[in-house]
Design a protein around this nucleic acid. Structure first.
Length: 228
DNA sequence: CCCTGATTCGC
DNA sequence: GCGAATCAGG
């Protein structure tokens, strides 16, 4: 199986592509290689980004560009400009279209020089096959946890923060390469084409973005309130 | 080295 | 259609 470019993945590709994310970055979020991204983008006819390289006329085939005079003699350009001051019909050929090319400055590429969390364990995908609104893998922390015996007065930074990070690498974790450090909150069903990670800019020092960090890290007290 | 994106071409 | 291989510039 190569890859099922479902309507959804394609839609996301389009979106991310339009957001100006790099192909590699998009690939990470879609769990495909940058090549796949570029290839698909091309086939979709997405607007090409300013390539860092210049292509050699893109003509792999020997474009027999040797119609020039054999003896090197210039074939006298017969095209002598005739009616020079011709009124010239207001053809649109005069000037090329505006070419509204927007500088694709990817704003989303901010890289918070955070700790090198190369070995971040992906959270156990809540995967209720439902939107990430509900997931909250927090519930994984059993009440029987010794940490539950937290002091009555909980400082803002409890020593035993009930982090719930389950190892789980069963999910096709496409190598945690030091990417642009993106939120690794799982969205969708792992294994299904739609699966991907949040990808938002994470809180420095945390593997999740602000929203998901709140879901991932819950203070015991808060939890009690929330559960209610 | 790393990054980038584009094209080619076997599958 | 797909994407690894390859290319090539920064």
């Amino acid at each position: 199986m190569a890859m099922e470019w479902t309507e959804e993945t394609i839609a996301r590709l389009r979106e991310l592509w339009q957001q100006g994310l790099s192909t590699a970055e998009i690939g990470r979020q879609l769990a495909v290689t940058k090549n796949a991204v570029v290839g698909k983008a091309h086939r979709l006819g997405l607007q090409a980004r300013p390539s860092p390289i210049r292509r050699p006329a893109a003509s792999a085939r020997p474009t027999v560009e040797a119609p020039s005079a054999p003896t090197g003699v210039a074939p006298a350009p017969v095209v002598a400009a005739p009616a020079v001051s011709t009124p010239v019909a207001p053809t649109e050929a005069v000037d090329r279209p505006p070419v509204t090319v927007q500088p694709p400055q990817p704003v989303a590429e901010i890289r918070p020089v955070a700790a090198t969390l190369t070995e971040i364990a992906r959270p156990a995908a809540p995967v209720p096959a439902a939107p990430p609104v509900t997931p909250a893998p927090v519930e994984a922390s059993q009440a029987g946890t010794p940490a539950a015996a937290a002091p009555a007065d909980q400082p803002a930074v409890p020593a035993a923060r009930p982090e719930v990070r389950v190892p789980l690498r069963a999910v096709a974790a496409p190598a945690p390469r030091r990417s642009g450090l993106t939120c690794c909150w799982p969205l969708g069903d792992p294994g299904t084409p739609g699966f991907h990670f949040c990808g938002a800019t994470p809180v420095p020092g945390k593997p999740y973005c602000v929203e998901h960090a709140q879901l991932a890290y819950v203070k015991l007290r808060d939890r009690r309130d929330n559960v209610a």
